[in-house]
Amino acid sequence: MSLYTDIGGEAAVNAAVDIFYRKVLKDDRIKHFFDGVDMSKQSAKQKAFLSMAFGGPHNYTGEDMRKGHAHLVAKGLNDSHFDAVMDNLGATLTELNVPGHLIAQAAAIAESTRKDVLGK
């Protein structure tokens, strides 16, 4: 069984996206990065990110991650902000009663993008 199936597939992504995005937008550590973005489009991106973290379908390459976040790195995006996103991901999954060992797997996938996201 894959992580994506265990965690609940697309239904889980749909359930998680609103909860996760609300947490991100309320988080004083990172909310300023979302000033002025189109909330509707951003929500679709959050969904793609969650699908990837849940071991689901995605085609993001490290290069995509670098390009997609370069403008934020220029604005000071760093490890502390990445940590904040990781916190919100964990809290979202906890709120959805996802078992701890699956949360750990999802966190490991998200964590694997850190260097690319931060342009290191």
Partner: peptide
């Protein structure tokens, strides 16, 4: 972008 039917 994602080519997986997610990012729109």
């Amino acid at each position: 972008s994602c080519r997986s039917g997610l990012c729109q």
